[in-house]
Computed example of a mutant assay.
Amino acid sequence: MYTQAEISAIRKKFWVAFGQYMKPVPNAQGRRINWPNYRTGVKDIYFRMKAERDFASVGIELGHSDPELQELYFDHFGQLKKILESSTQENWDWKLLSPNEVGQPVSRIEKVITGVNVLDEGTWPEIISFLKPRIIALDEFWDLVKPGFEEF
């Protein structure tokens, strides 16, 4: 068993390694970007990557405190679903208004893999191989559709 401090240190080490691995990769506009802390530039829309003990995920999280506005954002993304699927070359899971880790309702559009463990460095290549193409695809998708969300 790991202590909480050890778990935190291992997770930090993973995200530093992921950031170093992704550092030479420019975003869709050819700029340098901090991939692990991707900023969408639109309030309440986040790109989240997670690496946990039994899964890894990447996706879009809508965190507006007003459920009606959150649903409006979610519906707007739904209108762009074909573009997202074209960018990622796969279907993602769509979850409207489900509780996050602290019980707040959020909506997610995400892809998840199981059978990996961030605490096991042996699975890091698999986690990175999962996250890398999907966050790059999300960035390309966002470059196309972001103007439609800046008007909200």
Rank of each mutant, 00 (worst) to 15 (best):
L62W: 00
P147H: 05
T114I: 06
V116G: 06
S107R: 06
G19I: 09
F141Y: 07
L144D: 09
F18C: 04
T123W: 14
P133F: 11
E90R: 12
D66W: 05
G115P: 01
R31I: 07
A5L: 15
T40G: 04
V25C: 11
Q29V: 03
R134S: 09
Q29D: 12
L97G: 11
A137Q: 02
R39L: 08
Y21F: 15
Y2A: 14
W15L: 03
F74R: 11
L96H: 07
S87V: 01
S57K: 10
Q104N: 09
F141N: 02
K23C: 08
A28I: 03
F14C: 01
S86T: 10
G19T: 08
S129M: 14
V112F: 05
A28P: 01
L62G: 00
D93S: 14
K43T: 10
I109A: 04
Y73M: 13
V118L: 10
Q79W: 08
L138D: 00
S87R: 04
I136Q: 09
D44Y: 14
G41V: 02
P147G: 10
R11M: 13
K82F: 07
V116L: 05
G30T: 05
E61M: 10
D54E: 13
T88P: 03
Q89P: 00
S107E: 02
Q20D: 15
I33H: 14
Q79H: 13
W15D: 07
I60G: 03
V102G: 01
M1K: 14
A28W: 01
Y38P: 05
G59P: 00
F152Y: 05
R48W: 13
N37H: 15
I136E: 07
N34I: 02
K50M: 12
L69S: 06
R39F: 01
E140I: 07
Q4A: 15
T114F: 09
Q70K: 14
T114A: 05
P99I: 08
